[in-house]
């Protein structure tokens, strides 16, 4: 099976951040591979190990995103396409979905895997947009993948339970990080990744009109969350504090 996995470079949510006059200031060096995409890569690698095939990653991003691509290659992906962006564009999920769809238009593949959401913005839109643009069968929020008789069988997490869905190929699927623990590249993988091919592609070569990529949505500013009043910590003899807090929930917080 031929897997294309869409991977995104995102800011590390653990990196210190601050907001100044509505602008978000973060260390530009602290970028990571989106955790959900790492799960998608992992799952594709497992399926490739079982059934054979090829895993190629696709990333739209600035030059620095090559580090993110290397990470996926070090995990074991076979090759990569880097669709170059300057990083200054104000793209939203719809813009990325259009670029990805244009890239996939003339490609052959069985499965396009994506993350279920970007861990910095939690949008969760790109996957189903790509599927719609390419008229592919798809599912979202996969927590398990299997290949059976050339079809993709997806276990998806729904609102109250899980659904087993069978998709003919080619198809698209967005992956939850609850699916697996992505492998941490070992040193041999890191070394091998350097020799794996990264195809660099300009957006302009994909035959899309720049104006079409202009985002309909725009982040106008950032702000702090309304702070939660830090509460009180009760330390001491378990029995005593347990009863004390139970009482307070009734008399003070009024939630019993």
């Amino acid at each position: 099976m031929k897997f294309y996995i869409c991977i995104k470079m995102v800011p590390d949510v653990y990196a210190p951040l601050q907001i100044k006059e509505g602008e978000l200031i973060m260390d530009a060096d602290r970028m990571v591979l989106n955790a959900y995409d790492a799960s998608a890569v992992e799952e594709a690698l497992v399926l490739k190990e079982k059934h054979g095939g090829e895993v190629e990653v696709v990333c739209i991003g600035p030059a620095k995103a090559s580090e993110t691509i290397r990470k996926a290659l070090a995990m074991g992906a076979d090759k990569a396409t880097h669709i170059l962006a300057t990083g200054d564009e104000e793209y939203d999920s719809a813009s990325y979905a259009k670029i990805l769809s244009a890239f996939f238009k003339d490609k052959e593949y069985d499965v396009i895997g994506l993350g279920k959401q970007s861990q910095d913005t939690d949008s969760g839109l790109t996957g189903s947009m790509v599927a719609e643009h390419l008229s592919l069968p798809y599912t979202t929020n996969a927590v398990g993948l299997e290949v059976e008789n050339g079809n993709l069988v997806v276990k998806r997490q729904g609102d109250s339970g899980q659904e087993m869905i069978e998709l003919p190929t080619p198809c698209a699927v967005t992956c939850s990080n609850d699916m697996n623990d992505p492998r941490i590249p070992n040193l041999k993988g890191i070394m091998a990744s350097k020799r794996k091919p990264i195809d660099q592609v300009e957006i302009s070569s994909l035959g899309i009109d720049e104006t079409e990529l202009q985002a309909d949505t725009k982040v106008t500013s950032y702000e702090e969350k309304p702070a939660r009043q830090a509460g009180k910590k009760y330390e001491g003899e378990a029995e005593e504090v347990a009863r004390e807090v139970a009482q307070l929930l009734d008399t003070e917080a009024n939630v019993l």
């Binding site: 941490i184 590249p185 070992n186 040193l187 890191i190 070394m191 350097k194 020799r195």
Partner: peptide
């Protein structure tokens, strides 16, 4: 360029 490495998380 292809043979020297900085490897992290190891």
């Amino acid at each position: 360029a292809m043979d020297s490495f900085i490897a992290t998380d190891i």
